[in-house]
């Protein structure tokens, strides 16, 4: 990344040289070095997340990726977003994903069928997209610097002021959407239980078998609702 950016900068011509000299691109600042190191860890963890064959390990490497992104937000002085990231992603989304892995009875060890047969096509598409995006982005922003001095651009005070002065209506609409998602998840997880109850009424001969299945299903539904309710509580906490 650094080499490509440097090469782009050196070929940029005399118009951008002044900007480069004032910012000293060839001697990166401490924030840039920290961003680069945390970015390498984040990217490596993301690669392991999408390639590992152990499903639970994938969720745990996802924690590393999301935590690294929270550190990147802190380095970009967006502290409120960083803590929201830690609360919602690391705190609840990964817990929900682990719930889902456990409830679909995923094998705890290695599962050889984690990747489908089109992984080489997927790899081609991903590498081509990465090459095109990195080339375009480096070419477009090679002379652009973020000024991180002064008061933080994403402090809780600034974010809260802009959120409740300019973005109140979308914010309230979002709370309605969260409520709809909560109700929808509960409805989706309760439907099969009613179906099993009617099936038990209609075929009394298979009652014991159906009872066993229904008990299994209600256990699943309860634990899933617990996860979703916790999710909702945490979302409320960040509002």
């Amino acid at each position: 990344m650094t080499l490509a950016a440097t090469a782009g900068l050196l070929t940029a011509g005399p118009t951008t040289r002044a900007a480069a000299e004032t910012h000293g691109f060839l001697s990166p600042t401490g924030v840039e070095i920290a961003f680069l190191l945390v970015g390498l860890v984040t990217f490596g963890a993301a690669l392991v997340t999408v390639t590992t064959r152990q499903l639970v390990h994938a969720a745990l490497w996802l924690v590393v990726t999301l935590g690294g992104l929270a550190v990147e937000y802190l380095l970009l002085t967006a502290e409120f977003i960083a803590w929201v990231q830690v609360l919602i992603y690391v705190g609840s989304v990964v817990v929900l994903l682990l719930f889902g892995l456990m409830l679909t009875r995923a094998p705890i060890g290695r599962s050889p069928d984690a990747d489908s047969g089109n992984r080489w096509g997927a790899l081609t598409v991903a590498v081509a997209a990465a090459a095109a995006l990195v080339w375009v982005v480096v070419d477009a922003f090679r002379t652009t610097w973020i000024d991180l001095d002064g008061p933080a651009a994403g402090s809780t005070e600034a974010t809260g002021a802009s959120l409740f002065q300019n973005w109140v209506l979308p914010f309230e609409a979002l709370s309605v959407l969260l409520l709809a998602a909560l109700v929808g998840a509960i409805v989706l997880s309760r439907k099969a239980k009613a179906a099993a109850a009617i099936a038990t009424e209609s075929t009394p001969a298979a009652r014991s078998e159906e009872d066993r299945i229904e008990k299994d299903r209600s256990d699943k539904g309860r634990s899933e609702k617990d996860g979703i309710e916790k999710d909702g509580i945490e979302k409320e906490g960040t509002r």
Binding site: M1, F35, L47, A114, D115, R119, A126, A129, A130
Partner: peptide
């Protein structure tokens, strides 16, 4: 900070996710 750092990192992460969606 150079703006290319976060932009390149996010492009790489996006393509990692793209690979995962297609290959998993």
């Amino acid at each position: 900070m150079h703006l290319a750092y976060p932009a390149v990192l996010s492009a790489l992460l996006f393509c990692t996710g793209l690979y995962g969606v297609l290959a998993r």
